[in-house]
Design a protein around this nucleic acid. Structure first.
Lengths: 345, 345
DNA sequence: CGGTTCCATGGAATCGGTTCCATGAACTCG
DNA sequence: CGAGTTCATGGAACCGATTCCATGGAACCG
């Protein structure tokens, strides 16, 4: 079963393949006559240009690679959906690649994307920029970092401001009288993990709160590490009165442990989650979270790729992140009367 | 910046392109000598075969299309992740396509996938099988349906048994003394929506429960339609004592309304959700759900595509679905003492 | 030692588009 | 009316891999 080629269309229209090609790709040097005949013939035969053949000749594809950690994480799912929809608007197809937080699999996928000669790669990078990633950059394939960056690697990126949200969260908790705040930090191999931890440490210092190293646990952005961290925090001789988690999955892990232990969120223990995942809004009590905007990140990443492809100067974007106060944060137990956080000063 | 071609490798190794190609694709007619020289040269130059050129010549690609409704739905995210990982194991790249429950966008994507000459298409189909879908099938591109099917379209598929879960759920609720069970049904344009509704009606009849038409609301598999349905059900003169929703997003919508209205899940109103989404387990009380296995569905869909590609006979798979009883279902209010559902019997 | 077989090899054709270049018809203008 | 210009057109080259086919050297056998 051979597919319809441009030669078939040309024959049907009674013109040469060259003319058929010109008509179908909108080249101006075509007569009204051939335009109608070719268009008609293409429609009749159901002609679909072979993307491989076209790419081979023109040396550019209508495909981009989207290399994320895991689409089962709602944060990345949001990025993926919006990137893909935005790409489709420009007729660009999206190759989905889940690296699963594994540098080996990231390299495997980068190789595959290079073989596919994708027009650009959007990646939430893993590791230190060694391996295939360095090679991709020297090859000149347009790359845009999304969510994360890598130190010393100069690539346009779309990230969230990882500091402001954490700073606001600590200020909010300090205002509620909390002195011992636990942090379930992200892996220090990622820029987001590092920046959020650093912002936390700085905010703790600024507010003069306990900076007990036992209050900080390094997780891996997965549910189980959040649960493990929560257990360790709660088992401390002096447990924290508030907990902050550095991504949505670890937040889920924390909440799971609190439920198992019968600890009431918001009153017994204040919790600040990360990412304004829809599921958090259905949680009871509704979660106070650090919110950012994965949907815009996905769309913007595609924009940046297209700008680089068009030869426009590369730019990076840092999106706002902010604290959304809901019901999971309350006054520190035993802290006495504290002014309402939303009250004056 | 020109990429390394097989001619560069051949020159570096001091052989012809033909020999280089044979070595690199494992053709037996090669000498030990050229094998080492070519392999070495390819490694030195960082040669990556151009997938376009290869596909053009061999007339088959290492790419499949994955055409789903929306990866932000955790059910589809699970399918997407597992399909993609399973495809990667065979060196197959996955094009992600979200149709957003729109037949037009599905057609748009099918056209794009045909242009890309994908080796196969995994699709959770929309609509009645008219439009591009019919054309794709006549063209002979391997297609596998996942999750949903289309009546009268004979295509291998991986689906869940939509009846058994619903049947078990109604039996469970009937055993708890519920007589008025509300259903938030899925759209009747989808096979899953139809089958789940039909199974519900049949189970209601078998158990002799109220089959008041007001107890069934048609939703669209989105959160807001679940919320709308819940409001309408609760506003009935005689509201149901239990509610069953036909997918996870509509389940979320129902839960949202119950929280707003201060209705306690499990005691005031029993709720059975659909899909064993992780978020349901972190919900309090833990949700009783109809569970099936999107992860296996994704992996199996890729297997079926590969079997068709290998010329093996097309087969379809129906996966089990089952009721997982947790805490969101309890005895019907005012139904008197009822034997515990897990008790002897 | 001559003829046959075996086998690695390179040249060239091929896949399906795009694009350079030469051609010839139509048209313009002095 | 002739020279110059414009413009649509088709032939052919090309992109980078694979593969058919012819070739020649080595091995083998009678």
């Amino acid at each position: 079963m051979r597919a319809v080629t441009i030669h078939d269309v040309a024959a049907e229209a009674g013109v040469s393949a060259a003319t058929a090609s010109r008509v179908l790709s909108g080249h101006p040097a075509t007569s009204e006559e051939s335009r109608t005949r070719v268009t008609e013939a293409a429609r009749r035969l159901g002609f679909r240009p072979n993307a491989q053949a076209r790419s081979l000749r023109t040396n550019h594809t209508n495909t981009i690679g989207l290399l994320l950690s895991d689409v089962r994480n709602p944060f990345f799912a949001d990025i993926a959906h919006n990137a893909e929809q935005h790409a489709l608007e420009s007729g660009i197809a999206t190759l989905l690649c889940n690296a699963n937080e594994s540098t080996e699999q990231q390299d495997l996928y980068l190789d595959l994307l290079l073989s596919q000669r994708v027009a650009g790669i959007i990646v939430a990078p893993q590791g230190d920029g060694a391996g295939s990633l360095r090679e991709v950059l020297t090859l000149g394939v347009p790359v845009v970092f999304v969510d994360r960056t890598i130190d010393g690697v100069d690539v346009p990126s779309v990230t969230s401001d990882n500091r402001s949200g954490i700073t606001a969260a600590v200020a909010h908790l300090a205002g509620l009288g909390h002195h011992r705040i636990g942090l379930v930090a992200g892996p220090q191999e990622t820029s987001t993990g590092r920046e959020r931890l650093e912002a936390f440490r700085q905010a703790i210092a600024e507010h003069g709160l306990d900076d007990d190293p036992d209050l900080v646990h390094l997780g891996d952005f997965q549910v189980t590490s959040g649960a493990r961290a929560a257990n360790q925090l709660l088992d401390l001789a002096q447990p924290p009165t508030a907990v902050l988690a550095a991504d949505s999955l670890m937040t889920f892990g924390v909440l799971e442990v609190l439920r198992e232990r019968g600890i009431r969120v918001g009153s017994d223990l204040s919790v600040v989650g990360y990412d304004d995942v829809a599921a958090f809004r259905w949680f009871s009590p509704q979660l106070t979270v650090v919110a950012h905007d994965p949907a815009r990140m996905g769309a913007l990443a595609v924009d940046l790729i297209r700008e680089v492809l068009d030869g426009r100067p590369a730019r990076s974007v840092v999106l706002e992140s902010s604290l959304v106060v809901r019901e999971s944060t309350g006054p520190a137990p035993g802290a006495g009367s504290v002014p309402h956080p939303a009250g004056r000063q």
